[in-house]
Design a protein around this nucleic acid. Sequence first.
DNA 1: GACGATAATTAGGCCCGGCTAAATTTATAA
DNA 2: TTATAAATTTAGCCGGGCCTAATTATCGTC
Lengths: 225, 225
Amino acid sequence: MLSAIVEDYLKAIYYLQNETDGRVRTSALAEYMDVEQSTVTSMMKKLSERNFVHYEPYQGVKLTDTGVPIALEIIRHHRLLERYLTDHLEYDWAEVHDEADRLEHHISSQFADRIAEQLEDPAVDPHGDPIPTADLDVSGAKYEDTLADHQVGDSVRIERVPDKDPALLRYLSEHGIHPGTVVDVVETTSFGMVTLDPDSGDEPVALPDEVARSVSTRSLTKGAN
Amino acid sequence: MLSAIVEDYLKAIYYLQNETDGRVRTSALAEYMDVEQSTVTSMMKKLSERNFVHYEPYQGVKLTDTGVPIALEIIRHHRLLERYLTDHLEYDWAEVHDEADRLEHHISSQFADRIAEQLEDPAVDPHGDPIPTADLDVSGAKYEDTLADHQVGDSVRIERVPDKDPALLRYLSEHGIHPGTVVDVVETTSFGMVTLDPDSGDEPVALPDEVARSVSTRSLTKGAN
DNA sequence: GACGATAATTAGGCCCGGCTAAATTTATAA
DNA sequence: TTATAAATTTAGCCGGGCCTAATTATCGTC
């Protein structure tokens, strides 16, 4: 049996290794999990003994073929819960993350499958993150474009926004920015700022580059796709 | 913050002290929680330090005014979840207990209130156990009658069945016995057996006294409520 | 009222998941 | 190339929740 903590580490490693495209460093995990590095080291040894990760001292870790599906199962739970909480239990976009973060470890697969069924197997969660299927397929997970990649004049559709920061989510929500929203890029500055004009008629929104880089998009004007 | 384990102990004490109408003995708790007595003793000291129970060595424990509402909150979560799982997620009567037993510790009050709202504030869970209200009122909790109290010829309505034993629940379900079912007592034996004839037309069902004592009923023939 | 049976507690240990402080390895830069 | 900085690991401790074995208190009985 797996503790919630172990599941959290595996999930964290999954996210981090997709970002960095290689081994996950102790320091990165420590920051992500908000624990000391020494704590991470000892946990990595345990995960390694259980064959969830490849661990080489001083070189970081990588999920094994055993570890990946565990992480994906948790991520599936998380995203289904987020979808369910917003669609069926009137949760606000910005509120769902914490609730899902706890429950993901405690619902059965049966529970997950039942809510997936009620939701008619949604492809993405409320932030636009793809929901792994019951057999843990994540092929719908490609988002190469971000807001920061676009030029003034581009028209793009928002595909995904980061889900960890409630304040940002509330801000975006108030300005009518959701996955699916179409916006025009009206200004980019040398000091790291992007301004968007939503097609919905909402007022223009300004975002720091940092944020823009974490908002996935699909280009509408530049053809292709 | 409270661990799931601490919550479980408080819930167990609540149940046991309602059964025995007094202090809860270490041995009773140990059996209920399926741990060693020494484990209970050390936990009782901790709960006592936190002011959740009155603990007198060798004399057992009793929930304090701080402990009771904690237990009731968990029980509310549990019973709402059972209701929700059966009504909205197609869970079977016999399946809900384990899922609810895990989730009760991890849903927020907000979650509980949302599902209560969707269910339109149900009074009882699928086994007939009363659901504490949001302000933890349990005045609907009086069940003095049980199947074992009745005579041959009595007509009674089933009000509540024990929820912990899936095999029993499946058996009852197969024989059409639910809260709300009306049955006639057709036989009682000296060797501890009660036979019921459901008004629904289902075949008669035999139950050992042990079980009959744990099935709450409401008398229909003997007048007075 | 003393005695054995039973219940409860104490003592001491284990594993988990954290921590701090010290040692060690790796990376950087003179 | 070597010194120093930074990252990582090791060593050792702590609290939570469990255990076994040993001790002590309470209870039912004679």
